[in-house]
């Protein structure tokens, strides 16, 4: 069974049709990259899959692990195994990072009928992941993302993913804001999580990320539709020619 099956998904935001019929199937073990011009709807798709309620689904169907994803609340989708690394991580004053992460992990564990982890059990796991992402433990005593640099926020997203171990990870422009070294470290962290029963959707504008996290499939999202799909070579082609050509090929397609 495929892990994620998106059929003709249509989404409207503030009376604008943003997604106009998306079809995409993701199997366990696969890494899909979604590219596309600014404003084409990539983040919208990511957020809808994470069940952000502000985005109204006007048509289509999404199955996650065979279950109706669109009927789930955000926390249910999260507990079922969907993780979104945000393009713009949110600051939450007054809540310590480590505490937040443990609470999140415990929420997921509870959902699956597992025992909650106390601070003592959590610490070794947490330290291991910090090390994986080469992050300073001091950052973890601060409030969630508060005052973090752009790159620190992105790295923190991947840290959370490493702790929560989702079935489907959606990375929305995780590379933007990362310096060259950080990009390598974060990619290493992501690659370490690739496994036969986990899938990833990587939203990016740049080949440099896909050099590190090599995708199985590349899709181009333009104007609310997937207009082209291919292998890793498609990304290279885009890097060379830009979107203009592909968008042109989109014109003859039925509206």
């Amino acid at each position: 069974m495929s892990l994620l099956e998106i059929k003709d998904l249509k989404v409207r935001v503030d009376n604008h049709d943003i997604l106009k019929g998306i079809n995409l199937t993701v199997n366990p073990g696969e890494v899909h990259s979604i590219m596309g011009p600014n404003g084409s709807g990539k983040s919208t798709l990511a957020q809808v899959l994470a069940r952000r309620e502000a985005y109204a689904v006007t048509g289509g169907e999404v199955l996650f692990n065979g279950k109706d994803l669109l009927a789930m609340k955000p926390e249910e989708a999260a507990c079922e195994g969907i993780f979104l690394a945000f393009q713009y991580p949110v600051e939450i004053p007054g809540i310590g990072n480590a505490y937040f992460l443990r609470s999140a992990l415990n929420a997921v564990r509870k959902y699956h009928g597992q025992d909650e982890m106390d601070a003592m059990d959590f610490l070794p796991l947490f330290r291991e992941k910090l090390k994986l992402l080469d992050m300073d433990e001091k950052l973890m005593n601060r409030s969630v993302n508060e005052g973090f640099s752009g790159g620190e926020k992105k790295r923190n997203e991947i840290l959370q993913m490493a702790v929560l171990q989702p079935r489907l990870a959606i990375l929305d422009e995780t590379d933007s804001g990362l310096d060259i070294d950080a990009l390598k470290i974060v990619s290493k962290g992501v690659n370490a999580m690739r496994s036969p029963d986990r899938a990833m959707i990587v939203v990016t504008h740049y080949q440099r990320l896909l050099n590190e996290i090599v995708p199985d499939f590349v899709h181009v999202l333009a104007n609310g539709r997937i207009v082209k799909s291919g292998g890793p070579e498609l990304a290279l082609e885009l890097e060379e020619k830009g979107y203009a050509e592909i968008e042109d090929t989109r014109q003859p397609m039925p509206a």
């Binding site: 926390e75 939450i92 999140a104 959370q160 929560l164």
Partner: peptide, 17 residues
């Protein structure tokens, strides 16, 4: 949304904030 995306219920998210 951020907190709920990580698995916390709406009520837990509010009380955390």
């Amino acid at each position: 949304f951020y907190l709920r995306q990580r698995g916390l219920t709406a009520e837990d998210a509010v009380s955390m904030i």
